[in-house]
Design a protein around this nucleic acid. Structure first.
Lengths: 115, 115
DNA sequence: GTTGAGTGCAACCAAAGGTTGCGAAAGGTG
DNA sequence: CACCTTTCGCAACCTTTGGTTGCACTCAAC
């Protein structure tokens, strides 16, 4: 059975620019498209598109303030995303461990019978 | 400071089809482009391209067998990828926790002084 | 009012994921 | 051997996505 994950959430945090944006919003607090673009290697418009994607999947939400739009991380949603990350990680981890154990078992059998 | 991760590894496992492919290779053992495409909603050629991507970043490696090419997961590399996943997850988790703690502290102050 | 910073929208470009079509190599069978 | 089937790789093409430039709009401040 394949791992059950929300593909939209995954693809949202799969992009390196978007991951950095989340990092920035977490470490520096709420920011705007312009303020984020100053710390990123892409234009404001590109940042704006990424913000739209993150907003659409609910990882961040905007708060209009005068002529600016302040974006900030939705903690509950990010927590959900982190949970999915670690879920996939631990699934693979468990399978790797199982494969290793089987390999060792086979090795043991081979050694015993090969004498 | 932004989280330090190998962007190539991330984008490799960021694709839902590629994640499923890794799942299949882990659960069913080595497979070919054709055998994988039978269990996936895309054509053999698409699977072949994904296999090339995963091969390029080292998550899997091919073993020619007659007219077939058997692909299997490189356990060490996948373990590295899993480590990076959990690293990002725990970084965000820690920041969420810190934000929550600060929020609670502020709340405590507000309540005390607001009496 | 005029000026300037911040935004949104539209057009355009390049890369990535996906498809179809075809030709080549390896295995099975008459 | 000849034939047929399976698997594969390559090339052409389409669509989506990330990125850019250019322009018009809004709101705050002078």
């Amino acid at each position: 059975m394949s791992t059950v994950v929300d593909d939209e959430l995954w693809s949202a945090i799969g992009d390196p620019i978007r991951r950095t944006m989340i990092d920035l919003l977490l470490s520096d607090g709420p920011g705007t498209a312009t303020s984020l673009s100053r710390q990123l290697p892409v234009t404001r418009q590109a940042v704006s598109k990424h913000l739209a994607v993150l907003d659409r999947v609910g990882l961040i939400h905007a708060e209009p303030a005068g002529r600016e739009r302040h974006y900030q991380v939705d903690e509950a949603q990010l927590a959900r995303a982190v949970a999915q990350l670690s879920a996939v990680g631990s699934t693979w981890d468990a399978r790797l461990r199982r494969i290793k154990r089987i390999a060792e078992t086979v090795e043991r059998h081979r050694t015993n019978e090969g004498s």
